[in-house]
Amino acid sequence: MVRVYVIMAAVVALSLSSSDALAQICRYCPSFMKPSSPPIKKLASLAGCWIGKREPDGLAARVSYELGSEQSALLETIWIENNPTMYTIYYIDGDVGMAHHFCSYGNQLRMRAEPSEDPNILSLALLDATNLKSPDDNHMTHIRFQFIDEDHFNVEWGLHHNGRDIPQPYVFRRSAESCTGSQNPW
């Protein structure tokens, strides 16, 4: 009887240790679940599909967020009415939120999170770029998220276009519908 208990204890211990190993591949690697900044953690809560519009002109927009790479990367795919699809990868560098935006202007912009006292605001500012010959070329300058609740968020993209800085504010709500970009609802 003692032997049965010893075997059962060993099986339980082995299964617990192997499930822990499966749950986290790299215990010390960056992850959206680990940073001390609440707004950076909230990025992971965006995983899923969202529909919205640009204000004030009402241009339709859809966005999907997919969390991957052991919760260390968040892929944003955004479709804006009558515009090309764009991608942004959000990730953690140490304990700092970062974004790498692949813009329809053909440049690739790296942005870094700025400290925030408000747990519902995440601001990322342009750090550097590739394929941007001059700061006067068209490009995005910042991303500012405002997390409202589990099903709503606002985001402002800073656009430098034809020598002017033009804010691009969007409002989004969570959608149960598919976010695939292959459909063209416009």
Results as ranks from 00 to 15, higher is better:
A129L: 08
Y65R: 05
A113E: 13
M98T: 15
G68I: 13
R54N: 04
S17W: 11
R112G: 07
C49M: 02
T130A: 10
N138W: 04
G48D: 14
D151T: 05
Q183D: 00
M1T: 00
L74H: 11
M111D: 00
T77A: 02
I51G: 07
Y105E: 13
F147T: 10
R174C: 04
S36W: 00
Q183W: 01
P115A: 08
V96C: 11
N131Y: 08
D165L: 09
M111C: 04
S69Y: 13
S104A: 13
I143Q: 07
G97N: 13
T77N: 07
R3L: 15
L43R: 12
S116Y: 09
C103F: 05
D20P: 09
S182D: 13
S134P: 03
P38E: 09
I78S: 13
V96M: 08
C49T: 12
S31E: 14
Q71C: 03
F172E: 04
L132E: 06
S19D: 04
V96S: 09
R112V: 14
Q108L: 04
R62K: 06
A44N: 14
P115G: 07
Y90M: 03
N82V: 00
A9M: 03
Q183L: 04
R173T: 06
I78N: 04
D128L: 01
I166D: 04
S36R: 04
W186V: 00
I89H: 07
M33Y: 08
A60N: 05
F102T: 10
G181L: 01
H100V: 13
M140R: 07
L16D: 02
H100L: 14
V12M: 08
V4G: 00
Y105T: 11
L74Q: 09
L127P: 00
E177C: 06
N138A: 12
I7L: 12
Q71N: 13
F172L: 04
G68P: 07
I89W: 10
N82L: 01
R27L: 11
H152P: 06
V4T: 06
H161D: 02
V171R: 13
S15E: 02
Q146L: 12
S36F: 01
A23K: 06
Q71A: 10
P135D: 03
N107T: 14
G106D: 05
M111T: 00
I148K: 11
R3T: 12
S36I: 00
S72A: 15
Y91H: 07
N184E: 14
W50C: 03
E81Q: 11
L75P: 02
T130N: 02
M98R: 14
P39S: 04
E76F: 02
H100S: 12
F153Y: 15
